[in-house]
Amino acid sequence: MEGLKIIFEGSNFLRLLGGLWVTIRIALISIGLSVILGSFLGAAMRVRNKAVRAVCRAYLEIVRIMPQLVWLFIVFFGIVRTFGINLSGETSAVIVFTIWGTAEMGDLVRGGFENVPVHQYESSQALGLTKLQAYIYVIFPQAIRLLIPNMINLSTRMIKTTALVSLIGVTEVLKVGKQIIDANRFEAPNAALWVYGTIFLMYFFVCFPLSMLATAIEKKQKKLSA
């Protein structure tokens, strides 16, 4: 049980929370940027011009086909090499997760608009609304309702995926955990079990409420539309 004591000894628990905050901060910044850029991408995916749509589609597929960790390596190691710019691990992570998040978000926005039935567009036209009015008062509110649970799910995915930044040298919760384990190697030889168990639960308590929220909203909407 000495391993459990280590977690609450001194400022260890706060340090772990601080480490968790590092990854969550990366996730939050990337989510914010992705929502803005992804809305534009989603809009671009719905224009009539085939070339624009093809470019967007290609961007989405290229981003999706590679594991996020490969992208992190490409940006973190590759950009330094090719352009001589020295990016910190955190900056690389924000770049990668924004590029990825924009692609996923764009796809969600596109899906959100496509799920609004065509007669909604037609009815607003019949009512004499301008295109802008139709979008503001009729289409957006419905598209966003469909979008929100998916956005929350994407956010939890982002938070989980940012745990990878420990592999490009960012001192986040796994690294802090390792420091604590190493520092107490002799006093608490079984600290690893408790520290990694705690980190596991920390992620759970961050992501679980978000997942529940998304499910609850989805259920409510299903009831409304039924």
Binding site: K160, L174, Y203, F204
Partner: peptide, 15 residues
């Protein structure tokens, strides 16, 4: 579903 694979692996391998 609510925890990252890397954390699960660390727990399995080091914990």
């Amino acid at each position: 579903r609510n925890t990252p694979l890397i954390v699960q692996l660390f727990f399995l391998y080091f914990g």
